[in-house]
Structures are given as C-alpha cells and as structure tokens.
Amino acid sequence: MTPDIAIVPASEWPELIALFERCNRTDSIELPLYLNTDLAPTMAAARFGDTLVGGIVMYGYFAIEAVIAVDPAWRRRGIGRQLVDQVARWAQARGGSWLVLADEAGACVAPFAAALDLQRLNVEVLLHLDPAQVPPLPALPPNWHVRLAETDDAAVVTAIIADAFGDPVEKVEAFVADCITNPVHRFVIGEIAGIPVAVLRLLRDEQRVMIATFGVRREQQGRGYGRLLLLTTLHRLLAAGYTDIRIEVEEHNTPAYHLYQACGFVPYRRYGQYGRRS
C-alpha cells in the first residue's frame, strides 16, 4: 500500500503536530519541530484516505533537513521508507540535497537507518541552560558594551557574521535583512571601545529562547569577547524572566561545546543528521 503524500497548508499543521507529539510520547524522544525558524518550514502529510498515518517537516528549500514521523499504529508497513523517498524526490526536483534529522534517543533510529542504507553524517547537540550553573559576570572591561541591534545595524551584523563564518556576504546580507525586521528574531551586538566585534541571534517566543548565529570577528577571536557576549546576554535573559534557554552545537565543535557548558548549558538531546554520501 502506498499512502498519498502531499504538502499541506498551515491550517492542517495542528493535526500533524499532534502526530509528532504522539510519536514523542510513544518513543520517549523529542523530534526537532521548530515552527519559529528563519523561514517557515514546509509540512507534508501521508494519508490513506482521510486517515493520517505519517508526516514530514522540512526546513530549507534546496538543502532540505527533514523530520519524519509515522503513527505508531501504522509502523512496519514501509511508510517511513516512502516518506524518506518522497523527501529525496522533492530535493532532486529542486536540484538540491536532503538530510533526515532524528533524535538519537529513539530505539528505532539505528535499525531504520540501516534498513534504508542511511549514514549518520553529523550530530547536533541541543543544550538547555541550567540557571543554577550560570557563572557570575566577570569584571567587565570599561569599554565593553552589549546592545540590541536596530534595523540600521543590518550592515554591521552582516559584516560580523560573514567574517566569523566565512560565508558569502550577499547571502548573509539577505539572511540578516529577513531576520532583523522580524519580531521573533533579535540580534545582540557586543562592542569593544565602540567597535562591534561579536553578535548572536535570539529566537524568542513567550516561554523559550533559542540562541543561534553566534560569532566573533576573526581578528578578535581568542580574547574572551564571545564568552562576555554570551554571559551578558544570559544574565539579561534570566533577569527578564526567561528560564527555557537553548543553544545547539555540532558534537565535534569542541571549543564551542566547552564554552557553552562553562556558561551553564547542559546537554539535552542529540540529533543525528542522516543521508547518503555522494
């Protein structure tokens, strides 16, 4: 049997979200379902008639990162394989690439990946802040200043990110332009003697903050400015009443991993990125 797999409008997202939550409870996992991302995800439903049996959440367009879920009552019928195959077809039609994201705590992840000949290409670690482990602010340099970016700071933010990550300026410029006017996103700039040297981005909702796009100008790295910016931001978020604060890091990015742990973050989930090596 082959389900009908189709992209659905936002009005049908609640049913899919409920499916993902049902899978989370059944498997004791937390699938990475981020609705307040830089660009809204694409969601697809797999159905037999009116019965929802599976779902896909896709982040990105040409480089797709997909999360799949199969209703526990409909497993072991090849639906998961068909969902992955559909993601691959969509990516191929767009001339792009694809990955499947999975919570490594799931007992079915390894056998599912083996059955589909998927290889784990990378692991992203999601860390949660433990407020009790956040160290006090150190003595701040007298010329150190942290502020929220305004719309006219777009060029400054772009320059720091492009330099820190080595990304093409035109792509970073478009990314910053999209985010800096979006109320969900706020950039935070760290300055030394009036010169912007570091930036991070906050994705906020009423209860949660995700820290992302955290970088320091290359010529200023190794001087502690990144740690100062992160700690200053964390203290301000905690003072504002936020307690659910998160950050992600590649498992093998040891310097960043150690920095986040030193600032009070503790590992929460490991998300494997699965695909087929070209």
Rank of each mutant, 00 (worst) to 15 (best):
R217Y: 00
T232Y: 04
V184I: 15
V172G: 14
G166Y: 12
D178K: 10
R186N: 01
R223E: 07
V184F: 12
I211N: 08
V188Q: 05
V176M: 01
R201D: 12
G222V: 10
R204W: 04
V216H: 02
T213N: 04
R186V: 00
P183A: 05
E206C: 06
R217Q: 03
V209H: 11
A212P: 04
V176D: 00
R186T: 00
L202G: 03
Q221C: 12
Y225F: 12
I192F: 08
I189M: 02
R218K: 14
L234G: 00
V184K: 12
I211R: 06
R208Y: 13
L203C: 09
E219N: 02
C179D: 00
L237G: 15
A164T: 08
I211S: 08
P183C: 05
V184A: 13
L228E: 02
D163W: 07
I180S: 05
V199S: 09
V199L: 03
L228P: 06
E191T: 07
R223M: 05
D167L: 13
L202T: 03
T232R: 06
N182W: 03
V199T: 11
E219C: 01
D167R: 11
D205W: 02
M210V: 12
L237N: 15
G224I: 07
A162R: 04
H185G: 10
R223W: 05
R223S: 03
G222I: 09
R236V: 01
F175C: 06
H235Y: 14
G224K: 09
F214I: 07
R218I: 14
Q207L: 12
I180V: 08
N182V: 06
G194S: 10
T181N: 09
L229I: 04
R204P: 00
V184S: 12
G224R: 08
G215V: 14
T232V: 07
P168Q: 09
R227L: 07
G190I: 05
L234C: 00
L229M: 07
D178V: 02
R204S: 12
A212Q: 15
V216Y: 02
T232L: 02
L202H: 06
I180T: 03
G226N: 14
V169E: 10
F175S: 08
R223T: 01
T213E: 01
Q207S: 15
A162L: 01
D205T: 08
G166P: 15
I189R: 00
A162P: 06
R236P: 03
A174P: 07
E170S: 03
P196F: 03
I180W: 05
D167T: 10
P183H: 04
G190K: 04
L230T: 10
Y225W: 14
